[in-house]
Amino acid sequence: MLKVENVSKVFRSGAFGGKKAKVIHDVDFEVKPGEVVSLIGESGSGKTTVGRMILRLTSVSGGRITFEDEDISTLRGAGLKSYYRRVQGVFQDPFSSFNPIFKVGRVFRTIRREFLGDLDAAAWEARLTGALNAVGLEVAALDKFPHQMSGGQLQRLLIARALVLDIRLLIADEIISMLDASTRIDVLNLLGDLKRQGLSIIFVTHDLALGNYISDRIIILQKGAIVEMGTTDRVFGDPQHPYTRSLLDAVPHLHERWSDAELKDLGLVADTARFGGHLIEHRKDHLVRVYS
């Protein structure tokens, strides 16, 4: 359904783009219908940039992204609208995702004006109520200002915003990292339910436990390059790349305490990032980057 083919990104800065920095290196993966894929990486890994490129909020410098066999970089006007009807995003900060001076219901009115102008009032109401029910919110919630709602409620509203459209793919960029533990799981479970109904999700996160909970497949990004990719069982159950292992080792577990030596290993952080190399198939559904 979505194919990200050898995509790279170069950011330019300085006077008239004199300085260049390559932040994404030949990222290549695919998302199938009804599949949840986690893009996992630390800050600076480029995971958010990949998400924004798929949403066309950031342009692609090399390679191409296709959705249902259509190159998304060529989309304009009606074509782009039709793309956004099928592919939507939710971002990290729920409070920044709403215009603070308007009531939250305005977001839905905008959606109707931009995409569903031909729908009559009754059909629109039905669609809106359906989407809000799916995320466990009442229509009355639309009459509030963003600061009157919790982060979790706002994120669910944004998911409802996407559901009002006929979306096939949702890019969820760190959508629960700013939420409290008790509401986090509700939003995660909601994504799980939507997946069961056939929605594809790209779940961008730095939290391995969250990625593990919800995903069919895992992509580990380091400094803009994929270092390991495969089904969740394979990548988390039998990590091959040293970077993946070091990430998994650093995840704190509730019921298992690090040993003193492990905890106090405060040696200088070795920069393990290595460029170059290529992905090889370690076994079925499990790719690992090797360096020659």
């Binding site: 533990a181 008790s182 509401t183 799981i185 969740t232 998994l248």
Partner: peptide, 21 residues
């Protein structure tokens, strides 16, 4: 409830749906 709502590496939505509060 707080502890029960924490996903950990190894817990999968498909196998065990954690409750929220």
């Amino acid at each position: 409830l707080l502890l029960g709502s924490l996903p950990e590496v190894g817990i999968r939505f498909e196998e065990k749906r954690l409750p929220g509060i």
